[in-house]
């Protein structure tokens, strides 16, 4: 059982004074999964990752990695885990190569060529002899990923890894992570506040808000959330709602002059809705089929008002 699950977190709660950062959060992440941990800033993502890494002790609950409970006496467990917590930092006076050599030695690795290999894999060769203080934010991020990957971990915990990367870098890292999961069976736990980024990569997503895990979805369920709707603006919403109701079309008010229709057959014939409203004496001033995106779904789920489509 233990080797089927990379991460088992049970009832994690962490309080800082009066603030409950994480509240009764449980996770079961299977080996080989790419798990996207999604939440707004301050939702409890970083605190959760630090609890998974044993950096913060939960007030209640426990964490096991590969069936071994995370606790101070179990340092050998980290041989199988790579991680990057928030913005990566490195020893500024040391070069990229020296920073990676430090990681190699602290990871008790015998392979002396590991540093050169990871420099090559992460495209850091042009910067290998540059001091870390001179690196751009994007290359510093690459160095952070190199430190997380140098020992070819079975589990990778990444906190906002796309931060500071340019679009090409984001695609490159995404492909690298996908390759690790597909070819090497690496379990990846990746936190982000950018749903579209996580959605492109993750096989499963957990949405966390105010310290609680609100919902978990697999990739197919997530795709289904990209629903359509028909938005209609009229001057007389009362008359329009009445006319639509008489025609058997369900609509709801969304703002002062807008109606929303989510009935699928109706959405396929917006022309009929327009004709109906014109005949009822309340012609539409705007009529559009909208694609409800994942961000809207996410914001709706965490209780925030959706941005009205233009």
């Amino acid at each position: 059982m233990s080797e089927l699950l990379s991460i088992t977190a049970t009832g994690l709660t962490k309080r800082f004074g009066d603030v409950t950062a994480v509240n009764d959060l449980s996770l079961n992440i299977h080996c080989g999964e790419i798990y996207g941990f999604l939440g707004l800033n301050g939702a409890g993502k970083t605190t959760t990752i630090r609890m998974l890494l044993g950096m913060i002790r939960p007030n209640t609950g426990s964490v096991s990695l590969f069936g071994i409970k995370v606790q101070p006496s179990q340092s050998s467990i980290w041989q199988r885990v790579g991680y990057m917590v928030e913005t990566p930092h490195a020893y500024p006076d040391l070069t990229v190569r020296e920073n990676l050599e430090i990681t190699r030695r602290l990871r008790q690795m015998s392979a002396t060529d590991a540093v050169e290999k990871i420099i090559g894999e992460l495209g850091l060769m042009p910067y290998a002899n540059r001091r870390a203080r001179t690196l751009s934010l994007g290359n510093a991020q690459r160095l952070g990923l190199a430190k997380a990957l140098i020992h070819h971990p079975d589990l990778l915990l990444l906190d906002e890894p796309a931060n500071a990367l340019d679009p090409a870098g984001i695609v490159e890292i995404r492909n690298l992570l996908r390759g690790l999961a597909e070819n090497s069976g690496v379990t990846i736990f990746i936190s982000s506040h950018i749903l579209s980024e996580v959605a492109r990569l993750a096989t499963r997503i957990g949405i966390v808000h105010e310290g609680r895990l609100l919902k978990e979805l697999n990739a197919n369920e997530l795709a289904e959330q990209e629903e359509q709707r028909l938005a209609v603006d009229v001057n007389d919403t009362v008359a329009a709602l009445s006319a639509l109701g008489k025609a058997g079309i369900a609509a709801r008010l969304d703002g002062k002059n807008s109606l929303i229709i989510t009935d699928k057959p109706t959405m396929q014939h917006p022309d009929k809705v327009a004709t109906l409203l014109v005949e009822a004496g309340c012609p539409p001033t705007r009529l559009v089929v909208e694609q409800r995106d994942l961000e809207s779904y996410f914001l709706g789920l965490v209780g925030m008002k959706e941005e009205k489509k233009q």
């Binding site: 890494l53 044993g54 950096m55 340092s75 041989q79 917590v85 990871r107 008790q108």
Partner: peptide
């Protein structure tokens, strides 16, 4: 100061050894 502390906390080298 350099915020490198997180890099030395979850390693096979125990923190006490560090």
């Amino acid at each position: 100061g350099d915020k490198t502390v997180y890099d030395i906390l979850s390693l096979p080298t125990p923190r006490v050894t560090v």
